[in-house]
Simulated scan of single mutants.
Amino acid sequence: MVVSPRLTNAQLALLEMFSFEMSEAEVLAMLQTLMQHFRTRLEEETQKVIQQKGLTTAQLEEQMNFENRTQRLDQIRAAQ
């Protein structure tokens, strides 16, 4: 685990809110809830970008289908 030299406001809020013992099941449920929250945010942002750029789902999937991340990143940067 990477230790940040300074906690973010979200980390501090979570530490304060959950400053009590929780069972493993409760921790797992909390993590699943947080993951769902961020998944929803990602999906909303993706839909917004798709609409702004006028992309179809097929075009987006085509852009995401790559094997070499470095090469794909270079392509994205060159297109901007």
Rank of each mutant, 00 (worst) to 15 (best):
M64K: 08
L31F: 15
L14E: 07
M64V: 11
A29N: 03
Q52N: 03
F20W: 02
F18C: 06
E21I: 14
L28V: 14
T33Q: 08
R72H: 04
Q47G: 11
F18Y: 13
R77Y: 06
E61T: 10
L73V: 14
T57N: 09
I76C: 03
V27Y: 12
I50L: 02
D74G: 06
M22R: 11
R6G: 03
M1I: 13
F18Q: 03
L73R: 07
S23Q: 04
L15N: 09
E67D: 14
R77T: 12
Q52T: 02
L73A: 07
L55G: 01
L73C: 02
M30C: 08
A58Y: 06
F20Y: 05
Q36V: 11
V27G: 05
M17I: 12
A78Y: 08
F20D: 00
V27P: 01
F18G: 02
R39K: 13
I76R: 01
Q75N: 09
L31K: 14
T8S: 10
K48Q: 12
K48I: 13
Q51N: 02
E61F: 11
Q52G: 01
R41S: 03
A10T: 11
L60Y: 05
M1K: 09
E21P: 13
T33I: 10
M30F: 14
R72D: 00
N9R: 10
A79E: 03
Q71Y: 11
Q11I: 11
A25E: 14
R6C: 05
N9E: 08
E21W: 13
Q32I: 14
L12E: 10
I76W: 02
M17T: 13
E43P: 01
S19W: 06
E26Y: 01
E61H: 10
M64F: 13
T40M: 11
Q52H: 00
R39L: 15
I50R: 03
Q52P: 00
L15E: 07
S23E: 04
Q59A: 09
V2R: 04
L42H: 10
R69K: 13
L15P: 08
I50Q: 00
E16I: 15
